[in-house]
Structures are given as structure tokens and as C-alpha cells.
């Protein structure tokens, strides 16, 4: 009797937990949906409502602007229709995955995106993993030995790299490592003369990837280091660490298995939330190393200016940060039981 009761209770508890997760997910996902809608609206607002529309700007670039040309361009971009109709067309196109056609390449923005997304994910992904490991490792070690010379050196170098503009690091890296020492290429993702086989191509990509990745890593790691250090310092006052040490555990074990595990809770979600920062950094890194990714595509669209590309990439970049936030929220449910009470 009591056994079955206990089992029932346990079952109810899991069911309750399950329902709790669904409620939590709906709550968060509805917030995400609102944010995505906000992006869709603001992209339209920025590009169509704010003063300075594409055609007016284009007309300034054209050699002999005529009213006829302006009218034709307006019709081509659908800018001659009433605002509500324009908005409706924009919405229906967007939901069909149509982000417009690039002015400079005369190709759908979506096709360009599919072409360029791989290199960006490769560069950003490798740099992010490196930055997280280096930043969290150094941050935890720094907090553990806080007040020492090691800690001070770590914090101050992190602050310097935090203050250093990405373009300065990239340009100096190219001058030193590519031009002076001739260790790495100055840019691009591969050389034309590399044989079209798997291993030579792989080595060539790694060779080209090294400098931009290290640049991006240097730019990203300082934020993680400071976050981890603060989280660790917060944990270090707690009694459970004294208990663990009193049990006779070694210092390294207390740090790794007890303190760091708890400090990781608030810092894990930081990784997802730093996607916006990563995008900012890749924009500059890709531009300077002519890395054929989305950031380089964005940069090339600025001077034209290629409005459909800028608008499309704005929607994609902003949308992905919002989705990364949702992922962080979902992850938080699983790694921190305290989130489930909400």
C-alpha cells in the first residue's frame, strides 16, 4: 500500500515536473516569438520608414539622375506602393524565405547567405570554443588564487584585450605574423593552387583559419574570464567548500568538482548570450582577413550600399541571437533546478 502510494506520488511528481517544463517553455517561447516579431517590424521600420530611403541614396550616386530613373527604381523596389501594401509584401516574402535580391550581385540574398554561412560558423565556432575554455579556465584559476600576482596579471591582461579594438589586433597580427615573419597568409580561406583532395584542402583551411581564429579568441576570452572569476569568487565564500576541505579532499578536487561546478551554472548561459558579441567580432575579423563569410558579406554591402543584403543579414543576425537566448533558457531548466520554481 505504502509502496504503491509512494510510486504514485513519484509519478505525479514527474508529471508535475513535465507540465512545469511545458509551461516554462511556452512562457519563454512566447517571449522569443515577440522578440522575433519585433525584429521583423524594426527591420521594416529602419529600411522603409526612417528618413533616407534606398532610392534617394542611390540617386545621389548616379551620374545624371532623372525623375524617370527614380520612378523606375521605385517601382522596381516596390517603393511606389502605399506603406501598408509594402509591409504586406515584405511580410509575405519574408515568410516564404525571400529576403530580396542583392543590388551588387543580382542574386537572391538567401542564396548568398547559404553560400557564406559555412565559413562564418567554422570561424566563429572554433573561436568561441577556444575562448570559452581559455576564459573559463583562467577565470576559475584566477579566482582561486585571487589577490596573487597571477590573478592580477590575468585580470589586467583581460582588461587590455577587452579594450583593444578587434581591428587593431587583426592588423597588428597580419603585420607581425604574415608580413614580417611570413608564418601565415594575410587572408582568404584557401589558396587556389592547393590540390582538390581532402587532406591538402583541410590543411590549407587550417592554415588560413589560424590567425583569424586566434584574433577572435583574444577578443572574446576576456569577457568569459571576468564572468567566471566573478562567479567563482561568489561561490568561494560558501560553507560547503569548507566542508569539502574538512572531509580531506584535495584542493584541486574541491575547486574542480565543487566550486567550479556551481560557478558554471550562471556562466553557461553567458556563452549563448554572447552570440551578439561574437557576430560583432566576426564582422571585423572577416573583413580584415577577407574571410568569405557573412561578416565579410555585410561589410561589402556597406559601401554600395546594398540594402537587401543589409536588411536580410540584420534579420538573420538579430534573429539568431534571440534564438540563442531561448536555447540558453531551455538549457538553464536542465542544469539548474532552481529555475524550475519560477
Amino acid at each position: 500500500m505504502t509502496v504503491t502510494q509512494g510510486a504514485e506520488q513519484a509519478q505525479q511528481k514527474t508529471r508535475g515536473n513535465h507540465a512545469g517544463f511545458v509551461r516554462y517553455l511556452i512562457n519563454r517561447a512566447s517571449g522569443t516569438l515577440v522578440s522575433l516579431l519585433a525584429i521583423v517590424f524594426s527591420a521594416f521600420f529602419i529600411f522603409r520608414v526612417l528618413p533616407g530611403d534606398p532610392v534617394t541614396n542611390l540617386m545621389q550616386e548616379v551620374e545624371n539622375p532623372t525623375p524617370e530613373l527614380e520612378a523606375r527604381l521605385r517601382a522596381e523596389y516596390g517603393l511606389d506602393e502605399p506603406m501598408m501594401i509594402q509591409f504586406w509584401n515584405y511580410l509575405t516574402d519574408l515568410f516564404q524565405g525571400d529576403l530580396g535580391t542583392s543590388i551588387q550581385y543580382n542574386v537572391p540574398v538567401m542564396d548568398l547567405f547559404v553560400d557564406r554561412v559555412g565559413p562564418t560558423v567554422l570561424l566563429g565556432g572554433v573561436a568561441m570554443v577556444l575562448a570559452v575554455f581559455i576564459g573559463y579556465g583562467l577565470g576559475a584559476a584566477s579566482a582561486w588564487r585571487h589577490g596573487t600576482r597571477f590573478d592580477r596579471v590575468n585580470v589586467y591582461s583581460a582588461l587590455v584585450f577587452f579594450a583593444a579594438p578587434t581591428f587593431l589586433i587583426s592588423m597588428l597580427a597580419i603585420i607581425i605574423f604574415s608580413r614580417e615573419l611570413r608564418l601565415f597568409p594575410t587572408g582568404r580561406m584557401g589558396s587556389a593552387q592547393t590540390p582538390d583532395e581532402f587532406f591538402p584542402q583541410l590543411l590549407d583551411t587550417v592554415y588560413h583559419l589560424t590567425l583569424p581564429t586566434l584574433t577572435l579568441t583574444l577578443m572574446m576570452y576576456s569577457g568569459y574570464l571576468l564572468t567566471m572569476r566573478a562567479a567563482m569568487l561568489d561561490e568561494m565564500g560558501n560553507d560547503y567548500l569548507t566542508t569539502a576541505r574538512a572531509k580531506g579532499l584535495r584542493d584541486a578536487a574541491v575547486r574542480r568538482k565543487h566550486a567550479m561546478r556551481n560557478a558554471l551554472l550562471p556562466t553557461t548561459t553567458v556563452v549563448f548570450m554572447s552570440l551578439g558579441n561574437l557576430i560583432n567580432g566576426s564582422l571585423i575579423t572577416e573583413m580584415i582577413y577577407s574571410w568569405p563569410g557573412l561578416g565579410y558579406m555585410f561589410y561589402q554591402a556597406i559601401s554600395v550600399p546594398d540594402y537587401p543584403v543589409l536588411q536580410g543579414l540584420f534579420i538573420i543576425f538579430a534573429g539568431s541571437t534571440v534564438l540563442a537566448n531561448l536555447a540558453a533558457d531551455i538549457l538553464y531548466w536542465f542544469i539548474d533546478p532552481r529555475a524550475r520554481k519560477v
Binding site: N57, G276, I279, N280, I302, L310, F317
Partner: peptide, 21 residues
């Protein structure tokens, strides 16, 4: 505020300057 916090701010700033001159 949350929305603005997570946005790639550089991208938004670039777009605003391109549009407004």
C-alpha cells in the same frame, strides 16, 4: 531592454548610420 541587450549592437548601429547618413 533584454531585446536590445542581446542584439548584435554593431550590426544595428551600422544599419542605422547607413540609412540615416
Amino acid at each position: 531592454a533584454e531585446w536590445f541587450m542581446n542584439l548584435p549592437t554593431l550590426v544595428l548601429a551600422v544599419v542605422l548610420v547607413v540609412i540615416m547618413g
